[in-house]
Design a protein around this nucleic acid. Structure first.
Length: 957
RNA sequence: GCUGGGGUGGCGGAAUUGGUAGACGCGCGGGACUUAAAAUCCCGUACUAGCAAUAGUGUGCGGGUUCGAUUCCCGCCCUCAGCACCA
């Protein structure tokens, strides 16, 4: 029978905390530095919590307790995000009302959370489905509407046929409904949309003001916002007044444009119809595309398709070239202008399409390998990548010790082919070669090795060459000594060139030769074959081209975003009613603030209709109202808000949860805002976290909040997987319920274990064995403290030294690790303390030392810490104590052991005193028997002493 | 494909301005206590060879720089997450 009984102790302290109001946050107290630490509030599902859910809450709780002990006013609140599809679907399935099932689920979640002994102040609890709460969600919508940020749209949107509602882009996963996994359809319907794209630039730029966010999450947001700077160019159409406007970020490649592509849905198609000779074929293609789902369309990624618009020619304004026009579904109508200029040589998609349909591929960018020098001599040339049987021919220049490809400059009037074949013959002897394909151009600048020494600048054209047969001529006598030729595999060739003394980019040609995909060069480089852009860098070329476009009115600068405006209507029951009244005379009118909230009416039948109408539409009593402006009969908006609405601002409400006259009091907001630390799942990086930042910025512009960014520091929590390594799920039967764990091992064991499992942000598998380890540690600590009273006297001085050394290192390590969220190593340090200190003879001073340890342990295991604190004479809660300060004098030990290396290998160890003289240490090191035998008979070359770390001896044998 | 992580014992993982790789925990082996078992405590535990002292090998793979590389550089493989025809 173990000595420590978790259940009664945990119950005892939870009751005491409740009674004394230990964790109550006095919102009006502004005497101390504040700390706002926030969990992503849960969406209470019917299944209850599994052990993975509380991991983040445990971490914030540990952190909050540290801050309390360090003397901060801490706000650590919790609430419920309870509107939305999953709750409604759950209710439908169980034939109950969502309000009822939500209440039940919330109660269950709350009970489960309370078992773990968190510092949540339940007086601050909020619930997005309370009308007192969603009044302010509606209020924000009204402000958005009044600011022109919420508008009605009739564009086709994503429609989930199973959940029977429209969805935002953010609600899709692989083109499927994120909730139920069904394929979404495109459906045109009336909907409310929020103009998040107006904030796109600020959402993007302000990421730079968030140094304490993980770079990975900022990067995800950058990708999601997807800003790209480019130009729109107008292509005239031969024999038509219409223009094809294309968007491109690469005007520098304009002279490589060999055709133009329209999205199949592009409206221009109708206008051009009379000119199109093969209309039937075009029409068929458009129809085929229409019937493809978005998923099928993107799935065809690898196999591009399209149809030529026979009879239509577009004119490249830069050179007057008439190029063919295609429709192809690799061009999206919803991005840019729904039309692109195709530059197959420098865009992978165009390249693939051009190869499939045999369209010209014109190279206009050379890869730049190194900087040009003003004193360089220009000498262009050709290079051969001769491939035979998956091996490439590499020359070794013996005199200069360099590897190279067969290559050289032009002689007299030679063309590429002549020069190439001549060089191959001269340098390798092969006479029967077959030029397969060009590999593009590399601009190289380099110094000719010893022979000439001058700097060269060249455009080198690469060619893939096959051997027709092995026939060779004799090399010139001089060349036989000069070169050694060898056939090597890809990896070996890459390696040879990687360490080559003189190189101009041969690896690039080899890479292109071995993989067709690499033949399309999409980076910036030096412009070639391009009229007035010739020889400019891509960057300069873009500037010149834009200038030319604008001066000649053929186009203009343009910025596009991937992020779309936020589709904000749901045709479902369980959500905040959108506070709008439709009046035949006044149009859509906002519900006046005095009439908010627009309460969600109770209904018996709330099943989605599937017609695109919300179930609220059937509630005629509720729908029929009068216009607030003209008082004539009018109808309420029946769509509801998406699940993400309530969570986009909830953190603000914790600061002032019962305020009925304002969203949040200004003074309180100023003191408690912003959220100092926000912890939650990485899956919200592009949804919730973008929406919340968007609303927050809007509220900032409205003067409601005083900071531009809501969350100062952001940390994502890694999942806890099942013992089998799979996600915890009913489906796999690997779910561990915290109720069971707490009943068997206690909340403290669960808390300590979850913090100890591994790095906080990493996914780790649950291990009940591992949990036992945490439990044993607490038990050992308990036993150590309970046996303290049996010890008397002064103890041993060296034990004292040791205990103080460990204690102060523990204080430092735990304090620093908690702040950096490195809980696993903090717990390891606490374990070291118990293991090392429990058997030391410390006499009466033991109590003092262990008291400090208990404070340091308390954030992780608050119940057992309180119990032990009380046992050692603590009168008040341990959380009313102060975090101990570590003292530098105890951190370092006087005796150190250092390693001794001989020729880089550890051969022995040496005990020295801190501050020992270098000469003494070296002398002692050399005298060490295990070292000395490796020094025997050798000559000392070097002796290195890294202070208080190691000795490194170099001996020549 | 792109972007960002990651690859270290039987397992979860420590250690990075380059300095004794494997802290801590699990598991495993041995021992103590017990009539016995559980629990607890003590000792050991990277791998290979050896009775041992010891020697060799070792941080995904191949090279490089260095007295010294898990750490830095070049090339490659695998894996997880997000995005995915965004011109």
């Amino acid at each position: 029978m173990p000595n420590y009984q978790a259940a009664p102790v945990e119950k005892k302290w939870q009751e005491k905390w409740e009674k004394s109001g230990l964790y109550k946050t006095d919102l009006s107290a502004t005497d101390k530095p504040k700390y706002f630490i926030l969990d992503m509030f849960p969406y209470p599902s019917g299944a209850g919590l599994h052990v993975g859910h509380p991991k983040g809450y445990i971490a914030t709780d540990v952190f909050a307790r540290l801050k309390m002990l360090q003397g901060h006013n801490v706000i650590h609140p919790m609430g419920w995000d309870a509107f939305g599809l999953p709750a409604e679907n759950f209710a439908l399935k169980n034939k109950t009302h969502p309000r009822f099932s939500t209440e039940q689920n919330v109660a269950n979640y709350k009970r489960q959370l309370q078992l773990l002994g968190f510092t949540y102040d339940w007086n601050l609890e909020i619930n997005t489905t309370d009308s007192d709460y969603y009044k302010w969600t509606q209020w924000i919508f009204v402000k958005l509407f009044e600011a022109g940020m919420a508008y009605e749209s009739y564009e086709p949107i994503n429609w989930c046929p199973v959940d029977k509602t429209g969805l935002a882009n953010e609600d899709l996963e692989d083109g499927k409904c994120e909730r139920c996994g069904s394929l979404v359809e495109k459906k045109p319907m009336r909907q409310w949309v929020l103009a998040i794209t107006k904030y796109a630039d600020r959402l993007l730029n302000d990421l730079d003001k968030l140094p304490h966010w993980e770079p990975a999450i900022k990067e995800m947001q950058r990708n999601w916002i997807g800003r790209s700077e480019g130009v729109e160019i107008d292509f005239k159409i031969v024999g038509s007044p219409e223009l094809i406007c294309v968007f491109t970020t690469r005007v520098d490649t304009i002279f490589g444009c060999s055709y133009v592509v329209l999205a199949p849905e592009n409206r221009l198609l109708e206008e051009l119809r009379p000119m199109i000779k093969n209309w039937n074929q075009v029409f068929d293609y458009v129809e085929k595309v229409k019937n493809k789902s978005d998923l099928e369309r993107t799935d065809l990624n690898k196999d591009k398709s399209g149809v030529l618009l026979d009879g239509v020619k577009a004119v490249n304004p830069f050179n007057g070239a008439e190029v063919p026009v295609y429709i192809a579904d690799y061009v999206l109508n919803s991005y840019g202008t729904g039309a692109v200029m195709a530059v197959p040589a420098h865009d992978e998609r165009d390249y693939e399409f051009a190869r499939k349909y045999g369209l010209p591929i014109k190279e206009v960018i050379a890869k730049k390998f190194s900087e040009r020098r003003s004193d360089a001599v220009k000498r262009d040339g050709v290079a051969a990548v001769i491939v035979n049987d998956k091996k490439v021919l590499v020359l070794y220049d013996k005199k200069n010790s360099i590897y190279r490809l067969p290559a050289g400059g032009y002689e007299k009037e030679e063309n590429d082919e002549q020069a190439l074949l001549r060089e191959i013959k001269e340098e390798t002897g092969y006479v029967n070669c077959n030029i397969v394909e060009g590999l593009g151009t590399i601009e190289a600048n380099f110094q000719r090795l010893p022979l000439e020494g001058q700097y060269r600048h060249k455009f080198q054209k690469g060619y893939l060459v096959n051997l027709v047969n092995n026939e060779k001529t004799e090399l010139h006598a001089e060349d036989i000594d000069k070169f050694e030729s060898m056939w090597v595999a890809y990896e070996e060739a890459m390696q040879k060139f990687a360490t080559n003394k003189e190189s101009w980019g041969e690896e690039e040609f080899i890479r292109r030769a071995f993989d067709e995909k690499n033949r399309c060069f999409t980076d910036d480089g030096t412009i070639i074959n391009s009229d007035f852009l010739e020889d400019l860098s891509s960057q300069q070329g873009r500037e010149s081209a834009i200038k030319w476009l604008e001066e000649n009115s053929h186009g203009t600068r343009k910025i596009n975003y991937k992020i779309k405006d936020w589709v904000f209507s749901r045709q479902r029951y369980w959500g905040e009613p959108i506070p709008i009244i439709h009046c035949a005379f006044c149009g859509p009118v906002a519900v006046p603030e005095s009439e908010l909230p627009v309460k969600l009416p109770d209904v018996a039948e709330y099943e989605p209709s599937g017609t695109g109408e919300s179930p609220l539409a059937k509630m005629t009593d509720w729908v029929n109202t009068t216009c607030p402006k003209c008082s004539k009969p009018a109808k309420r908006e029946t769509n509801t808000m998406p699940q993400w609405a309530g969570s986009s601002w909830y953190y603000l409400r914790y600061i002032d949860p019962r305020n009925s006259s304002a969203l949040v009091d200004k003074t309180l907001e100023k003191y408690w805002s912003p959220v100092d630390f926000y912890v939650g799942g990485a899956e919200h990086a592009t949804r919730h976290l973008i929406y919340a930042r968007f609303w927050h910025k809007f509220l900032y512009d409205q003067g409601v909040v005083s900071y531009e960014e809501p969350f100062v520091r952001l940390q994502h929590v890694g999942l806890i997987m099942g013992e089998d390594g799979r996600k915890m799920s009913k489906r796999w039967g690997n779910v561990i319920n915290p109720d069971d764990v707490v009943a068997q091992f206690g909340a403290d064991s669960l808390r300590v274990y979850e913090m100890f499992m591994g790095p906080f942000d990493q996914a780790v598998s649950w291990s009940t064995k591992g949990l036992v380890g945490a439990s044993r540690f607490l038990e050992r600590t308990y036993n150590a403290v309970t046996s303290l009273s049996a010890r008397t006297g002064d103890g041993k001085p060296e034990d004292h030294q040791k205990a103080l050394h460990i204690l102060h290192n523990t204080i430092k390590k735990v304090e620093e690790d908690i702040q950096e969220f490195k809980f696993n190593t903090a717990v390891a340090q606490l374990m070291i303390f118990t293991n090392e200190v429990k058997d030391l003879e410390l006499g009466a001073d033991a109590v003092n030392i262990w008291q400090k340890m208990i404070i340091v342990l308390s954030p992780f295991a608050p119940h057992i810490a309180e119990e032990l604190w009380e046992m050692l004479g603590g009168k008040d809660s341990v959380f009313r104590a102060s975090w101990p300060k570590y003292e530098a004098q105890y951190l370092l030990e006087d005796k150190i052991r250092i390693g001794i290396q001989v020729n880089g290998k550890i051969r022995g160890e040496l005990a020295i005193s801190r501050g020992a003289e270098e000469q003494e240490v070296l002398k002692a090191a050399k005298a060490e028997p295990s070292v000395a035998k490796f020094l025997e008979g050798g000559q000392m070359v070097k002796e290195i002493y890294v202070k208080e770390k190691l000795v490194s001896l170099v001996v020549k044998m």
